[in-house]
Design a binder for these strands. Structure first.
Length: 504
RNA sequence: GGCCCGUUCGUCUAGGGGUUAGGACGCGUCCCUUUCACGGACGAAACACGGGUUCGAUUCCCGUACGGGCUACCA
Protein backbone atom coordinates (compact mmCIF):
# COMPACT_ATOMS: atom_id res chain seq x y z
CA UNK A 1 0.00 0.00 0.00
CA UNK A 2 1.18 3.50 -0.80
CA UNK A 3 2.09 5.66 2.13
CA UNK A 4 -0.24 8.55 2.87
CA UNK A 5 1.19 11.66 1.27
CA UNK A 6 2.65 13.87 3.95
CA UNK A 7 4.89 16.71 2.90
CA UNK A 8 6.41 19.58 4.76
CA UNK A 9 7.71 23.02 4.14
CA UNK A 10 10.54 23.54 6.54
CA UNK A 11 12.03 27.01 6.45
CA UNK A 12 14.42 28.38 9.02
CA UNK A 13 13.38 31.64 10.67
CA UNK A 14 16.46 33.52 9.58
CA UNK A 15 14.70 36.21 7.61
CA UNK A 16 11.73 36.96 5.42
CA UNK A 17 10.46 34.14 3.28
CA UNK A 18 11.26 35.04 -0.31
CA UNK A 19 9.51 33.94 -3.47
CA UNK A 20 11.77 30.93 -4.00
CA UNK A 21 10.73 29.64 -0.61
CA UNK A 22 7.10 30.42 -1.32
CA UNK A 23 7.29 28.39 -4.50
CA UNK A 24 8.75 25.44 -2.62
CA UNK A 25 5.89 25.75 -0.16
CA UNK A 26 3.43 26.01 -3.05
CA UNK A 27 4.64 22.85 -4.76
CA UNK A 28 4.50 20.98 -1.49
CA UNK A 29 1.00 22.26 -0.87
CA UNK A 30 -0.23 21.44 -4.36
CA UNK A 31 1.23 17.97 -4.21
CA UNK A 32 -0.43 17.32 -0.87
CA UNK A 33 -3.79 18.60 -2.12
CA UNK A 34 -3.56 16.61 -5.30
CA UNK A 35 -3.10 13.44 -3.32
CA UNK A 36 -5.41 14.29 -0.44
CA UNK A 37 -2.44 14.32 1.84
CA UNK A 38 -1.08 16.51 4.58
CA UNK A 39 0.94 19.65 4.28
CA UNK A 40 2.98 20.57 7.30
CA UNK A 41 4.81 23.72 8.31
CA UNK A 42 7.87 22.91 10.36
CA UNK A 43 10.23 25.54 11.65
CA UNK A 44 13.88 24.58 11.46
CA UNK A 45 15.38 26.81 14.08
CA UNK A 46 18.40 24.77 15.05
CA UNK A 47 20.80 27.61 14.45
CA UNK A 48 20.28 29.87 17.41
CA UNK A 49 22.86 32.34 16.18
CA UNK A 50 20.87 33.08 13.07
CA UNK A 51 17.48 33.50 14.68
CA UNK A 52 15.74 36.64 13.46
CA UNK A 53 12.97 38.28 15.39
CA UNK A 54 9.69 38.26 13.52
CA UNK A 55 10.78 35.84 10.83
CA UNK A 56 8.57 32.99 11.95
CA UNK A 57 5.51 35.18 12.17
CA UNK A 58 6.34 36.53 8.75
CA UNK A 59 6.49 33.04 7.27
CA UNK A 60 3.07 32.20 8.67
CA UNK A 61 1.53 35.45 7.47
CA UNK A 62 3.07 35.14 4.04
CA UNK A 63 1.69 31.64 3.57
CA UNK A 64 -1.72 32.81 4.71
CA UNK A 65 -1.74 35.71 2.29
CA UNK A 66 -0.81 33.38 -0.54
CA UNK A 67 -3.51 30.92 0.41
CA UNK A 68 -0.93 28.19 0.87
CA UNK A 69 -2.28 26.91 4.13
CA UNK A 70 -0.70 24.01 5.96
CA UNK A 71 -3.14 21.76 7.77
CA UNK A 72 -0.61 21.03 10.46
CA UNK A 73 2.24 22.92 12.00
CA UNK A 74 3.46 26.15 13.49
CA UNK A 75 0.77 28.80 13.21
CA UNK A 76 -1.78 26.44 11.76
CA UNK A 77 -2.69 24.18 14.62
CA UNK A 78 -0.77 21.35 16.16
CA UNK A 79 -1.30 17.81 15.03
CA UNK A 80 -0.26 14.59 16.63
CA UNK A 81 3.35 15.15 15.66
CA UNK A 82 3.82 18.30 17.66
CA UNK A 83 5.90 20.23 18.41
CA UNK A 84 6.72 21.62 14.98
CA UNK A 85 9.61 23.77 16.03
CA UNK A 86 12.90 21.95 16.15
CA UNK A 87 14.13 23.93 19.12
CA UNK A 88 11.14 22.56 21.02
CA UNK A 89 11.55 19.05 19.70
CA UNK A 90 15.10 19.07 20.93
CA UNK A 91 14.01 19.05 24.56
CA UNK A 92 12.59 15.58 24.16
CA UNK A 93 16.04 14.30 23.32
CA UNK A 94 15.03 12.76 19.98
CA UNK A 95 17.94 14.14 18.06
CA UNK A 96 20.43 12.93 20.62
CA UNK A 97 18.72 9.55 20.60
CA UNK A 98 19.22 9.17 16.87
CA UNK A 99 22.78 10.45 17.09
CA UNK A 100 23.56 7.91 19.79
CA UNK A 101 22.09 5.22 17.64
CA UNK A 102 24.49 6.12 14.88
CA UNK A 103 27.40 6.22 17.28
CA UNK A 104 26.47 2.86 18.74
CA UNK A 105 26.36 1.25 15.34
CA UNK A 106 29.73 2.77 14.47
CA UNK A 107 28.44 5.15 11.85
CA UNK A 108 29.07 8.33 13.76
CA UNK A 109 31.74 9.50 16.16
CA UNK A 110 32.67 12.24 18.59
CA UNK A 111 34.98 15.00 17.43
CA UNK A 112 36.71 17.38 19.81
CA UNK A 113 38.46 19.67 17.38
CA UNK A 114 38.18 23.35 18.10
CA UNK A 115 37.35 25.77 15.32
CA UNK A 116 40.98 26.89 15.39
CA UNK A 117 42.10 23.34 14.83
CA UNK A 118 39.66 23.00 11.96
CA UNK A 119 40.97 26.19 10.40
CA UNK A 120 44.50 24.93 10.74
CA UNK A 121 43.56 21.69 9.07
CA UNK A 122 42.04 23.53 6.14
CA UNK A 123 45.07 25.75 5.77
CA UNK A 124 47.37 22.80 5.92
CA UNK A 125 45.44 21.02 3.24
CA UNK A 126 45.28 24.07 1.03
CA UNK A 127 49.02 24.49 1.37
CA UNK A 128 49.36 20.88 0.32
CA UNK A 129 47.33 21.78 -2.76
CA UNK A 130 44.28 19.85 -1.72
CA UNK A 131 41.51 21.48 -3.69
CA UNK A 132 38.59 20.73 -1.47
CA UNK A 133 39.68 20.53 2.14
CA UNK A 134 37.17 18.60 4.14
CA UNK A 135 36.78 16.56 7.27
CA UNK A 136 36.57 13.08 5.80
CA UNK A 137 37.76 9.51 5.92
CA UNK A 138 41.32 10.58 5.23
CA UNK A 139 41.69 13.79 7.19
CA UNK A 140 39.85 12.64 10.28
CA UNK A 141 42.79 10.38 11.00
CA UNK A 142 44.83 13.44 11.88
CA UNK A 143 42.16 15.08 13.96
CA UNK A 144 41.06 14.73 17.56
CA UNK A 145 38.10 12.43 17.59
CA UNK A 146 36.87 9.21 19.07
CA UNK A 147 38.30 7.34 16.12
CA UNK A 148 41.87 8.53 16.71
CA UNK A 149 41.99 9.13 20.46
CA UNK A 150 42.43 6.29 22.94
CA UNK A 151 39.18 5.13 24.44
CA UNK A 152 39.89 6.28 27.98
CA UNK A 153 40.80 9.74 26.78
CA UNK A 154 37.55 9.95 24.87
CA UNK A 155 35.61 8.93 27.95
CA UNK A 156 37.51 11.44 30.03
CA UNK A 157 36.92 14.21 27.50
CA UNK A 158 33.23 13.42 27.38
CA UNK A 159 32.95 13.27 31.16
CA UNK A 160 34.84 16.50 31.66
CA UNK A 161 32.20 18.36 29.74
CA UNK A 162 34.56 19.46 26.97
CA UNK A 163 32.61 20.61 23.94
CA UNK A 164 32.29 18.08 21.18
CA UNK A 165 30.33 17.45 18.04
CA UNK A 166 29.01 14.22 16.60
CA UNK A 167 30.03 13.57 13.03
CA UNK A 168 28.77 11.13 10.46
CA UNK A 169 31.38 8.55 9.54
CA UNK A 170 31.27 8.67 5.77
CA UNK A 171 33.02 5.77 4.02
CA UNK A 172 36.11 6.58 2.01
CA UNK A 173 35.13 5.33 -1.39
CA UNK A 174 31.65 4.07 -1.96
CA UNK A 175 29.15 4.80 -4.67
CA UNK A 176 25.98 6.41 -3.36
CA UNK A 177 23.05 6.42 -5.74
CA UNK A 178 19.56 7.62 -5.20
CA UNK A 179 16.54 8.42 -7.25
CA UNK A 180 15.16 11.91 -7.41
CA UNK A 181 11.57 12.26 -8.59
CA UNK A 182 12.47 15.18 -10.81
CA UNK A 183 15.99 14.28 -11.88
CA UNK A 184 16.09 10.53 -11.99
CA UNK A 185 19.17 8.67 -10.78
CA UNK A 186 21.90 10.71 -9.19
CA UNK A 187 25.23 9.09 -8.44
CA UNK A 188 27.89 10.47 -6.13
CA UNK A 189 30.99 8.92 -4.71
CA UNK A 190 31.25 9.10 -0.95
CA UNK A 191 34.73 10.54 -1.27
CA UNK A 192 32.97 13.77 -2.22
CA UNK A 193 30.93 13.80 0.94
CA UNK A 194 32.45 15.11 4.14
CA UNK A 195 31.90 13.83 7.65
CA UNK A 196 28.91 16.03 8.31
CA UNK A 197 28.35 17.38 11.77
CA UNK A 198 25.17 15.82 13.12
CA UNK A 199 25.09 17.27 16.60
CA UNK A 200 26.66 20.63 17.28
CA UNK A 201 28.65 21.48 20.38
CA UNK A 202 25.70 23.41 21.78
CA UNK A 203 23.73 20.18 21.71
CA UNK A 204 21.57 21.28 18.80
CA UNK A 205 21.30 19.04 15.79
CA UNK A 206 22.33 20.34 12.41
CA UNK A 207 19.84 20.50 9.59
CA UNK A 208 21.18 17.21 8.29
CA UNK A 209 20.25 15.25 11.38
CA UNK A 210 17.24 17.26 12.44
CA UNK A 211 15.31 17.13 9.22
CA UNK A 212 15.83 13.40 8.90
CA UNK A 213 14.75 12.70 12.44
CA UNK A 214 11.69 14.86 12.02
CA UNK A 215 10.81 13.45 8.64
CA UNK A 216 10.94 9.99 10.15
CA UNK A 217 8.97 10.91 13.24
CA UNK A 218 6.43 12.93 11.32
CA UNK A 219 5.98 10.19 8.75
CA UNK A 220 6.92 12.44 5.86
CA UNK A 221 6.44 10.69 2.53
CA UNK A 222 8.17 13.12 0.19
CA UNK A 223 10.95 15.58 0.85
CA UNK A 224 10.45 18.39 -1.62
CA UNK A 225 13.07 21.10 -1.49
CA UNK A 226 15.26 23.38 -3.57
CA UNK A 227 18.09 22.21 -5.75
CA UNK A 228 20.61 23.71 -3.37
CA UNK A 229 20.11 20.59 -1.27
CA UNK A 230 21.08 18.17 -3.98
CA UNK A 231 24.78 18.04 -3.04
CA UNK A 232 24.03 17.05 0.53
CA UNK A 233 21.42 14.45 -0.39
CA UNK A 234 24.02 11.64 -0.53
CA UNK A 235 24.91 12.31 3.10
CA UNK A 236 21.23 12.10 3.94
CA UNK A 237 20.92 8.78 2.15
CA UNK A 238 23.78 7.50 4.26
CA UNK A 239 22.09 8.60 7.46
CA UNK A 240 18.88 6.82 6.54
CA UNK A 241 20.88 3.77 5.54
CA UNK A 242 22.79 3.65 8.81
CA UNK A 243 19.55 4.06 10.69
CA UNK A 244 18.24 1.04 8.81
CA UNK A 245 15.54 3.15 7.19
CA UNK A 246 16.74 3.55 3.64
CA UNK A 247 13.76 1.69 2.25
CA UNK A 248 11.24 3.72 4.20
CA UNK A 249 12.82 7.09 3.68
CA UNK A 250 10.83 9.87 2.00
CA UNK A 251 11.08 10.12 -1.73
CA UNK A 252 13.24 13.04 -2.79
CA UNK A 253 12.31 15.83 -5.16
CA UNK A 254 14.77 18.64 -5.78
CA UNK A 255 13.12 21.65 -7.38
CA UNK A 256 14.92 23.81 -9.93
CA UNK A 257 15.90 27.22 -8.63
CA UNK A 258 14.28 30.54 -9.42
CA UNK A 259 16.96 32.73 -10.93
CA UNK A 260 17.38 36.47 -11.23
CA UNK A 261 15.99 37.94 -14.46
CA UNK A 262 19.21 39.65 -15.38
CA UNK A 263 22.62 38.74 -14.31
CA UNK A 264 22.47 35.35 -12.80
CA UNK A 265 22.24 33.39 -9.65
CA UNK A 266 19.52 32.49 -7.23
CA UNK A 267 16.95 35.15 -6.79
CA UNK A 268 17.99 37.49 -4.05
CA UNK A 269 16.51 40.33 -2.09
CA UNK A 270 19.21 42.68 -3.28
CA UNK A 271 17.56 42.83 -6.67
CA UNK A 272 15.68 46.10 -6.43
CA UNK A 273 13.72 46.25 -9.65
CA UNK A 274 10.93 44.06 -8.37
CA UNK A 275 9.83 42.60 -5.05
CA UNK A 276 11.18 39.25 -3.90
CA UNK A 277 9.08 38.96 -0.77
CA UNK A 278 5.36 38.21 -0.76
CA UNK A 279 4.76 40.74 2.03
CA UNK A 280 6.95 43.67 2.96
CA UNK A 281 9.76 42.50 5.15
CA UNK A 282 11.51 44.62 7.69
CA UNK A 283 14.65 42.90 8.80
CA UNK A 284 15.58 44.06 12.30
CA UNK A 285 19.22 44.18 11.16
CA UNK A 286 18.55 46.43 8.21
CA UNK A 287 17.33 50.00 7.95
CA UNK A 288 15.01 49.90 5.01
CA UNK A 289 12.20 47.40 4.63
CA UNK A 290 11.93 45.32 1.49
CA UNK A 291 8.68 45.90 -0.32
CA UNK A 292 6.43 42.91 -0.85
CA UNK A 293 4.21 41.79 -3.68
CA UNK A 294 1.16 42.63 -1.62
CA UNK A 295 2.30 46.19 -1.08
CA UNK A 296 3.30 46.50 -4.72
CA UNK A 297 -0.31 45.89 -5.60
CA UNK A 298 -0.24 42.26 -6.65
CA UNK A 299 -3.10 39.94 -5.98
CA UNK A 300 -2.12 36.77 -4.14
CA UNK A 301 -3.81 34.78 -6.91
CA UNK A 302 -1.52 36.39 -9.46
CA UNK A 303 1.56 35.88 -7.34
CA UNK A 304 0.77 32.22 -6.82
CA UNK A 305 -0.07 31.77 -10.49
CA UNK A 306 3.26 33.23 -11.55
CA UNK A 307 5.16 31.04 -9.11
CA UNK A 308 3.37 27.90 -10.17
CA UNK A 309 4.43 28.41 -13.76
CA UNK A 310 8.04 28.89 -12.81
CA UNK A 311 9.30 25.37 -13.22
CA UNK A 312 5.97 23.67 -13.78
CA UNK A 313 3.50 23.69 -16.66
CA UNK A 314 0.21 21.96 -17.28
CA UNK A 315 1.24 20.51 -20.64
CA UNK A 316 -1.17 22.63 -22.64
CA UNK A 317 -1.33 26.30 -23.50
CA UNK A 318 -3.33 27.43 -20.52
CA UNK A 319 -1.67 29.81 -18.12
CA UNK A 320 -4.20 31.33 -15.82
CA UNK A 321 -4.90 29.02 -12.92
CA UNK A 322 -6.40 29.43 -9.49
CA UNK A 323 -4.72 27.61 -6.66
CA UNK A 324 -7.68 25.22 -6.69
CA UNK A 325 -7.12 24.49 -10.38
CA UNK A 326 -3.47 23.94 -9.69
CA UNK A 327 -4.08 21.53 -6.87
CA UNK A 328 -6.02 19.33 -9.26
CA UNK A 329 -3.34 19.43 -11.95
CA UNK A 330 -0.01 19.61 -10.23
CA UNK A 331 2.41 16.82 -10.82
CA UNK A 332 6.16 16.43 -10.38
CA UNK A 333 6.34 14.83 -13.78
CA UNK A 334 5.72 18.20 -15.29
CA UNK A 335 8.29 19.99 -13.19
CA UNK A 336 11.34 21.10 -15.14
CA UNK A 337 14.91 20.30 -14.29
CA UNK A 338 16.40 23.62 -15.24
CA UNK A 339 16.33 26.86 -13.30
CA UNK A 340 13.89 29.54 -14.38
CA UNK A 341 14.64 33.23 -14.61
CA UNK A 342 11.88 35.28 -13.09
CA UNK A 343 10.24 37.70 -15.52
CA UNK A 344 8.78 40.73 -13.71
CA UNK A 345 6.95 41.85 -16.86
CA UNK A 346 5.02 38.65 -17.11
CA UNK A 347 4.17 38.88 -13.44
CA UNK A 348 2.50 42.21 -14.13
CA UNK A 349 0.57 40.69 -16.99
CA UNK A 350 -0.71 37.99 -14.67
CA UNK A 351 -1.84 40.60 -12.22
CA UNK A 352 -3.73 42.31 -15.00
CA UNK A 353 -5.52 39.06 -15.79
CA UNK A 354 -6.78 38.87 -12.23
CA UNK A 355 -7.59 42.55 -12.06
CA UNK A 356 -9.90 42.13 -15.02
CA UNK A 357 -11.80 39.43 -13.22
CA UNK A 358 -12.74 41.84 -10.45
CA UNK A 359 -16.07 43.63 -10.48
CA UNK A 360 -16.17 47.42 -10.67
CA UNK A 361 -17.45 47.45 -7.15
CA UNK A 362 -14.50 45.44 -5.87
CA UNK A 363 -12.14 47.70 -7.72
CA UNK A 364 -13.85 50.77 -6.32
CA UNK A 365 -13.41 49.49 -2.79
CA UNK A 366 -9.76 48.76 -3.46
CA UNK A 367 -9.09 52.11 -5.08
CA UNK A 368 -10.95 54.28 -2.62
CA UNK A 369 -8.08 54.48 -0.11
CA UNK A 370 -5.86 56.01 -2.78
CA UNK A 371 -8.40 58.78 -3.26
CA UNK A 372 -8.88 59.34 0.42
CA UNK A 373 -5.15 59.74 0.74
CA UNK A 374 -5.40 62.56 -1.77
CA UNK A 375 -8.27 64.09 0.13
CA UNK A 376 -10.79 63.22 -2.53
CA UNK A 377 -14.18 61.90 -1.65
CA UNK A 378 -16.77 60.81 -4.18
CA UNK A 379 -19.94 58.78 -4.13
CA UNK A 380 -19.70 55.01 -4.46
CA UNK A 381 -21.51 55.06 -7.80
CA UNK A 382 -19.19 57.72 -9.18
CA UNK A 383 -16.17 55.77 -8.02
CA UNK A 384 -17.46 52.56 -9.55
CA UNK A 385 -18.03 54.24 -12.87
CA UNK A 386 -14.59 55.78 -12.66
CA UNK A 387 -13.06 52.35 -12.10
CA UNK A 388 -15.00 50.91 -14.99
CA UNK A 389 -13.55 53.54 -17.31
CA UNK A 390 -10.04 53.45 -16.08
CA UNK A 391 -9.40 49.77 -15.55
CA UNK A 392 -8.84 48.72 -19.13
CA UNK A 393 -5.18 49.54 -19.39
CA UNK A 394 -4.31 49.05 -15.76
CA UNK A 395 -2.31 46.20 -14.37
CA UNK A 396 -2.64 47.42 -10.81
CA UNK A 397 -5.34 49.22 -8.87
CA UNK A 398 -2.93 51.95 -7.85
CA UNK A 399 -2.54 52.82 -11.53
CA UNK A 400 -6.17 53.89 -11.61
CA UNK A 401 -5.08 57.33 -10.55
CA UNK A 402 -2.62 57.91 -13.34
CA UNK A 403 -5.08 56.73 -15.97
CA UNK A 404 -7.83 59.10 -14.96
CA UNK A 405 -6.59 61.77 -12.56
CA UNK A 406 -7.81 64.42 -15.01
CA UNK A 407 -11.31 63.55 -13.96
CA UNK A 408 -10.56 64.80 -10.47
CA UNK A 409 -8.17 67.56 -11.36
CA UNK A 410 -8.78 70.25 -13.93
CA UNK A 411 -6.17 70.45 -16.65
CA UNK A 412 -3.41 72.96 -16.09
CA UNK A 413 -1.85 72.39 -19.49
CA UNK A 414 -2.95 71.02 -22.81
CA UNK A 415 -1.17 68.38 -24.83
CA UNK A 416 1.28 70.36 -26.89
CA UNK A 417 1.47 68.07 -29.87
CA UNK A 418 -2.26 67.91 -30.41
CA UNK A 419 -2.72 71.66 -29.97
CA UNK A 420 0.15 72.51 -32.29
CA UNK A 421 -1.23 70.28 -34.94
CA UNK A 422 -4.95 70.87 -34.73
CA UNK A 423 -5.80 74.06 -32.91
CA UNK A 424 -6.48 77.34 -34.73
CA UNK A 425 -8.99 80.22 -34.52
CA UNK A 426 -11.40 78.64 -37.00
CA UNK A 427 -11.45 75.41 -35.10
CA UNK A 428 -11.94 77.34 -31.90
CA UNK A 429 -15.10 78.92 -33.30
CA UNK A 430 -16.42 75.50 -34.21
CA UNK A 431 -15.82 74.18 -30.72
CA UNK A 432 -17.46 77.19 -29.18
CA UNK A 433 -20.53 76.38 -31.25
CA UNK A 434 -20.32 72.79 -30.07
CA UNK A 435 -20.16 74.00 -26.49
CA UNK A 436 -23.26 76.08 -27.02
CA UNK A 437 -25.10 72.96 -28.11
CA UNK A 438 -23.82 71.06 -25.11
CA UNK A 439 -25.09 73.75 -22.81
CA UNK A 440 -28.64 73.07 -23.84
CA UNK A 441 -28.37 69.29 -23.76
CA UNK A 442 -30.76 68.05 -21.12
CA UNK A 443 -30.02 64.38 -20.87
CA UNK A 444 -26.31 64.33 -20.09
CA UNK A 445 -25.41 60.72 -20.76
CA UNK A 446 -22.66 59.12 -22.77
CA UNK A 447 -25.16 58.01 -25.37
CA UNK A 448 -26.81 61.42 -25.72
CA UNK A 449 -23.44 63.11 -25.90
CA UNK A 450 -22.45 60.81 -28.70
CA UNK A 451 -25.62 61.65 -30.60
CA UNK A 452 -25.24 65.34 -30.08
CA UNK A 453 -21.66 65.23 -31.27
CA UNK A 454 -22.70 63.41 -34.43
CA UNK A 455 -25.51 65.80 -35.25
CA UNK A 456 -23.34 68.81 -34.47
CA UNK A 457 -20.88 67.56 -37.01
CA UNK A 458 -23.57 67.27 -39.64
CA UNK A 459 -24.32 70.87 -39.08
CA UNK A 460 -20.91 72.36 -38.38
CA UNK A 461 -18.57 70.06 -40.24
CA UNK A 462 -15.82 67.83 -38.95
CA UNK A 463 -14.97 68.17 -35.28
CA UNK A 464 -11.81 66.49 -34.06
CA UNK A 465 -12.59 64.24 -31.16
CA UNK A 466 -9.08 64.10 -29.86
CA UNK A 467 -9.04 67.85 -29.76
CA UNK A 468 -12.23 67.85 -27.76
CA UNK A 469 -10.59 65.37 -25.44
CA UNK A 470 -7.59 67.60 -24.95
CA UNK A 471 -9.78 70.63 -24.24
CA UNK A 472 -11.61 68.74 -21.54
CA UNK A 473 -8.90 66.59 -20.01
CA UNK A 474 -5.68 68.23 -21.11
CA UNK A 475 -4.21 64.94 -22.27
CA UNK A 476 -4.25 63.07 -25.55
CA UNK A 477 -5.26 59.68 -24.19
CA UNK A 478 -7.70 58.18 -21.76
CA UNK A 479 -10.95 56.29 -21.46
CA UNK A 480 -13.88 56.62 -23.84
CA UNK A 481 -14.41 60.36 -24.16
CA UNK A 482 -18.20 60.51 -23.94
CA UNK A 483 -18.05 58.29 -20.89
CA UNK A 484 -15.57 60.69 -19.35
CA UNK A 485 -17.80 63.66 -20.14
CA UNK A 486 -20.81 61.89 -18.71
CA UNK A 487 -18.96 61.08 -15.53
CA UNK A 488 -17.61 64.60 -15.25
CA UNK A 489 -21.09 66.03 -15.55
CA UNK A 490 -22.45 68.89 -17.55
CA UNK A 491 -21.37 71.72 -15.32
CA UNK A 492 -17.73 70.73 -15.04
CA UNK A 493 -17.43 69.84 -18.69
CA UNK A 494 -18.75 73.21 -19.81
CA UNK A 495 -16.57 74.98 -17.31
CA UNK A 496 -13.50 73.19 -18.57
CA UNK A 497 -14.33 74.07 -22.13
CA UNK A 498 -14.67 77.73 -21.21
CA UNK A 499 -11.34 77.63 -19.42
CA UNK A 500 -9.75 76.08 -22.46
CA UNK A 501 -11.19 78.73 -24.72
CA UNK A 502 -9.78 81.38 -22.42
CA UNK A 503 -6.33 79.88 -22.35
CA UNK A 504 -5.96 78.78 -25.92
C1' G B 1 39.53 24.53 -8.32
C1' G B 2 36.52 19.97 -7.13
C1' C B 3 31.74 17.62 -7.15
C1' C B 4 26.64 17.72 -8.60
C1' C B 5 22.68 19.60 -11.69
C1' G B 6 21.21 21.86 -16.05
C1' U B 7 21.03 23.99 -21.57
C1' U B 8 14.36 24.90 -27.26
C1' C B 9 12.78 32.35 -29.42
C1' G B 10 15.27 38.11 -24.99
C1' U B 11 12.09 35.53 -20.89
C1' C B 12 8.58 31.39 -19.20
C1' U B 13 7.76 27.05 -21.85
C1' A B 14 5.29 22.81 -25.37
C1' G B 15 7.21 19.10 -28.24
C1' G B 16 10.12 15.05 -29.42
C1' G B 17 14.06 10.18 -34.20
C1' G B 18 11.09 12.52 -40.13
C1' U B 19 6.92 19.02 -37.38
C1' U B 20 6.14 25.07 -41.74
C1' A B 21 9.56 23.42 -34.03
C1' G B 22 3.58 25.30 -31.01
C1' G B 23 1.88 28.82 -27.07
C1' A B 24 2.50 33.00 -23.52
C1' C B 25 5.09 37.69 -21.85
C1' G B 26 7.68 41.55 -24.11
C1' C B 27 8.65 43.98 -29.00
C1' G B 28 7.04 45.66 -34.10
C1' U B 29 3.31 46.33 -38.14
C1' C B 30 -1.64 46.39 -39.58
C1' C B 31 -7.10 46.15 -38.77
C1' C B 32 -11.18 47.85 -35.74
C1' U B 33 -12.00 52.74 -33.68
C1' U B 34 -14.21 60.41 -35.68
C1' U B 35 -11.12 60.12 -29.42
C1' C B 36 -9.12 56.43 -26.15
C1' A B 37 -8.74 51.61 -24.92
C1' C B 38 -9.97 46.69 -25.19
C1' G B 39 -9.93 43.29 -29.02
C1' G B 40 -8.28 40.93 -33.58
C1' A B 41 -4.63 39.75 -37.45
C1' C B 42 0.22 39.41 -38.83
C1' G B 43 5.55 39.66 -38.05
C1' A B 44 10.69 39.44 -36.15
C1' A B 45 12.63 35.86 -32.67
C1' A B 46 14.98 29.45 -30.45
C1' C B 47 16.61 23.62 -30.61
C1' A B 48 24.72 26.14 -27.38
C1' C B 49 28.83 23.70 -30.17
C1' G B 50 31.54 19.23 -31.90
C1' G B 51 31.55 14.18 -32.52
C1' G B 52 29.00 9.65 -32.74
C1' U B 53 24.30 6.09 -33.22
C1' U B 54 20.76 6.18 -37.32
C1' C B 55 18.27 6.01 -43.84
C1' G B 56 17.35 10.45 -40.87
C1' A B 57 18.87 13.94 -35.11
C1' U B 58 16.69 19.60 -32.19
C1' U B 59 15.07 14.85 -29.92
C1' C B 60 19.37 9.13 -28.02
C1' C B 61 24.91 8.66 -26.42
C1' C B 62 29.78 10.98 -25.53
C1' G B 63 32.68 15.21 -25.19
C1' U B 64 33.29 20.66 -25.15
C1' A B 65 31.42 25.31 -23.95
C1' C B 66 28.27 28.01 -21.08
C1' G B 67 25.02 28.66 -16.80
C1' G B 68 23.61 27.38 -11.90
C1' G B 69 24.10 24.95 -7.11
C1' C B 70 27.19 23.05 -3.30
C1' U B 71 31.91 23.02 -1.17
C1' A B 72 30.45 25.67 7.63
C1' C B 73 29.52 23.17 14.50
C1' C B 74 23.99 27.83 8.05
C1' A B 75 19.80 26.16 6.53
Amino acid sequence: MEKRVRVRFAPSPTGGLHMGGVRTALFNYLFAKRHNGDFILRIEDTDQTRFVEGAEEYIVNALKWCGIEPNEGVGFGDGEHKPYRQSERKTSGVYKKYADKLIDSGHAYYAFDTSEELDEMRKRLEAAKVVAPQYNAVTRQNMRNSLTLPEDEVTQLLDSGKPYVVRLKVPRNEEIRFQDIIRGWVVVNSSQVDDKVLLKSDGMPTYHLAHIVDDIEMKISHAVRGEEWLPSAPAHILIYRYLGLENEMPKLAHLPLILNPDGNGKISKRESRFPVFPLSWKDPRENAPFIGYREAGYYPEAFVNVLALLGWNPGNNEEVFSIEDLSKLFDFERVNKSGAKFDPEKAKWFNQQYLRKKTDKELAIAFNPFLIEKGIQVSPSFLEEYCRLVKEKAQFVHEFWQYGSFIFEEPTAYDDKVIQKKWNPDVKQLFIKLKNKLEILENWTSHELHELFASAQNELGKLDMQLLRVLITGVAGGPQLFDVMALLGKEKTIKRLNTAFDKL
